[in-house]
Design a protein around this nucleic acid. Sequence first.
DNA 1: ATTATTGTTCAGCATTACTGAACGCTATTC
DNA 2: GAATAGCGTTCAGTAATGCTGAACAATAAT
Lengths: 270, 270
Amino acid sequence: MQDAQKLMLSAKGHVSATAKALKILECFTPFQHELTLAQISRLLDMPKSTLLNQLRTLEELGYLMKVRDGSAYRLGYKIMELSYCAHTAIPMSQYAIPVMEDLQDATGEIIYLTSHINGRSFYMECVYPNSRSVPYSVSGKTLPMHCTGCGKAMLSQMNTQQVEAIIQQYGLASLTPNTITDHDLLMEDLAKCRARGYALDNEEETLGVKCIAMAIRTPRGEVAGALSISGSPISMVPEVLDPYAALLARACTSLTQYAHLFPAIQLQTP
Amino acid sequence: MQDAQKLMLSAKGHVSATAKALKILECFTPFQHELTLAQISRLLDMPKSTLLNQLRTLEELGYLMKVRDGSAYRLGYKIMELSYCAHTAIPMSQYAIPVMEDLQDATGEIIYLTSHINGRSFYMECVYPNSRSVPYSVSGKTLPMHCTGCGKAMLSQMNTQQVEAIIQQYGLASLTPNTITDHDLLMEDLAKCRARGYALDNEEETLGVKCIAMAIRTPRGEVAGALSISGSPISMVPEVLDPYAALLARACTSLTQYAHLFPAIQLQTP
DNA sequence: ATTATTGTTCAGCATTACTGAACGCTATTC
DNA sequence: GAATAGCGTTCAGTAATGCTGAACAATAAT
């Protein structure tokens, strides 16, 4: 193992074996559902023999499972069970969903509720229109902040140091041809967001999806999260922006009283 | 620590520190969102000093978080992030949801898709009617099998040994006055389920919710999961049972081809 | 046939996770 | 206000245990 990584796992008062296990779980992403022992070994730069013990433990307890007729691992059901507990522990959802449903009824579009964690957008809830064939659960999804409406809405209300730190940490990856990948252009766009009070996503994360988003702040002014209205370019025409912004403003204001329940506020990020 | 528990955590080829950390996470349930160090210490019968290191590690990595202005812990956001990955890794959902939507359109009721894990019902997806104000995400929820339609549908298709083992492990807890808590009555009810091909939940898990459920089986006959139609006693009248059963039968048959993707089948339960 | 890669075993060593007692601290009790 | 009980926290010593590298069989690729 590399020394830098070794150092990260072995701080004082820490259980390095536990940290290793969690790092193993984090190797799995929405783009990488299955991993073999050798793949994890390369990803984490750990000896295979070390990993095997950890993998067996994780598998035994249901946090990993072997793919049928194969040697690859997948995240296990226990993760989802725990997540259900975590989800029910966020009482904010019960306040936010009615507000989101009102937005949905008024606009007919998709409504997202996000927070931010470690410099990334964190999706908490969504309310879809009645027309189906859309992904159901978004809870737990994360995305870079620079390329989504919610992300930019939150960034625009942070101080420059924080924004610069986030950009430096994650860069400005391009997800579509419209993604803002230039530092100065992004700062310009954020200034516009600040000026008009809301952010616009012009198919910057997914082609065919435009959105308008507004930040939710605590009474003290900290950025807790954001609400967004997303739809196709056909329905998200310029004329709807003003009325949608007004709807969002009302919704965000009403959620301010629950802002302290957002992960971004509850977590004391190191 | 008690010897029995100690033994469970320290099998050969296992990382006991990792197992401890996961056992800590599992202390949190939908009925117990917040736990203090002392509470966990009592729950797991572990010294506080031992726990503190683990808790710090879990917190540092985002798997636990401290409640604001308090010393209690809560499950962290990383759990939900991982769960999102786990959820996207189950390709079955994409096949099941259209089938569930058809059921929803035909009945107007709530449709649940479950599997079973370690003798408990495991909820995977749900499709709600357009009328709102219902809990959104059920993914990861677990319930005892004897008191739900889906659970009984699955139990009725298992062999007696398995059923007896599950009853012995979890007992027959009462969730409502209608819950079947008598062993013989339950076996009688399961026989009825077997005879007519579907299970009925007569407000046995939640008062005001009746449901009809049918098991999903693999081509080899193993019980993979179940589909259910849930509604109020007002709409779930005896006359709808036959047509609903026919709808369920078609849906369950069509999902047989994907039955190998259910957790109950993918997991080789120890 | 050969090479490369896979998952796996094992024993010994050094690391490290565990522990119990003791510490301040707050809340409760008398 | 004194006393108790409970809390989270620190710390150093030690026993335990997680880690490791080399070697294994088995498969996949060349």
